[in-house]
Nucleic acid binder design. Structure first.
Lengths: 225, 225
DNA sequence: CTAGTTTGTAACCAATTAGTTATTTATTGC
DNA sequence: GCAATAAATAACTAATTGGTTACAAACTAG
């Protein structure tokens, strides 16, 4: 091509950013690298992911990937951090304090299940990261505070249920969260081997709906007095 | 080295195999390749595992690996099949028919948990295989019959408990197995990220024992009338 | 004892891979 | 308008990787 078109460039009358030039757009480039990397790492793991494949999926030159993220490992960590921020941010938006304790627990259990169902790449990334014993996650500083909020919410629901006399005295909020998460995570992340060896398609709509009800049932049964 | 020592070779007086030559021993070579491959695939996944690393771990020449197993993918499938045979074989040895229904379920839940705890490589292999949507497991023919036995055992326990009036009417044996497996699998396979984000070491002895009790409690609570 | 087969080794190869260099083009602060 | 800087491309490289070739030693059947 020759010179740039005068069309979509610079700032508009209000001094705000106009729509970016088709030729240069750092934010969009960065975002598309991150999105492409999320897919590639989720599908192939850290060891199986290919930097060239990420560049191609993102429609950018490989050099840009190193420009924005340093190297493959830092890119992977950025992907992982963004994935955690995604679920914890979505969690924030559910309001549990208006609900009865049992309803609140059920709501959180269903939220977790549905989030896992709609974000298979999150599950894959967790699997990959654990394969490597949290080697990269442990380097991340800015994640821990995200999780104390979740524990706080659960503790509050448990306290209210205990005061009402409907929940057991000795429920550990971490155990409760792990129970809900385990039931959703295992079913979805292992659906391929499970469907194969048990000869039942776990991805069918009816099976998925049945498992959601099962999760709520098991979770509540485990904490009721 | 020069000529072979006459020492440990050929057959003994009874015509049986004597202890193998130090120089040639196909069975031992094959077994050590399989053991080394199990470790390498479990630690690094299919994409991250290195054929050279397997050969080195096994203390054999890489050529032998191709001689016995064809290529990397067939070796991986052999590792996976052996891992499944391992757990299903161990399961066979527990006798549930002498136990009361509740005890039987508890026994199976504890067995599953302990097997997972003692065979982390099995969990890793499942994770890797599911990352690839059971691509290799689906090619395996000889695995399905292994699993119908397990379902049979569970159905029998559930029937007896239902007849006794202590279990609910509508329990799906597959759901029951998935519940026990999910609680063990998730805790162990995700222990590294979970310990990191929640700031609690899930591998501590007391935590592990607490989780075993939790699994039994949740499993039984979910099926009791 | 010997020819054929199996088990084993060492060195090699073509393809792939993470990361770089050299260079050009667009954008921005002054 | 213009120098400085940021964004982008294409081509390259050194190391690694899965798989192979050529060859040698050990075992077995007749």
């Amino acid at each position: 091509m020759e010179k740039a078109q005068a069309g979509a460039r610079g700032r508009n009358a209000n001094g705000e950013r106009a729509e970016r030039s088709a030729q240069r757009d750092p934010e969009r480039t960065r975002a598309s690298i991150l999105a492409a990397a999320t897919k590639e790492f989720a599908e192939n793991g850290m060891g199986g992911a290919r930097v060239d494949a990420i560049a191609e999926r993102a429609g950018i030159n490989k050099r840009m990937l190193y420009h924005y993220f340093g190297d493959k490992e830092q890119l992977y960590l950025a992907v992982l951090e963004e994935a955690y921020i995604g679920i914890r941010t979505a969690e924030k938006s559910i309001n549990l304090s208006d609900l009865e304790p049992e309803e609140g627990i059920a709501e959180l259990a269903m939220f977790t299940w549905r989030y896992f169902l709609e974000h298979p790449e999150f599950l894959s990334l967790l699997g990959t990261e654990n394969l490597h014993r949290a080697r990269w996650l442990r380097q991340s500083t800015r994640l821990k505070e995200l999780h104390s909020q979740l524990m706080g919410k659960l503790s509050e629901l448990l306290d209210r249920g205990r005061a009402k006399g409907i929940f057991r005295e000795d429920v550990d909020p971490l155990h409760l969260y792990l129970t809900m998460a385990a039931l959703g995570y295992f079913y979805l992340s292992n659906q391929y081997t499970l469907s194969t060896i048990f000869g039942r398609d776990l991805a069918e709509r009816a099976s998925l709906e049945g498992w959601e009800r099962h999760i709520v049932h098991v979770t509540l049964a485990s904490i009721r007095r």
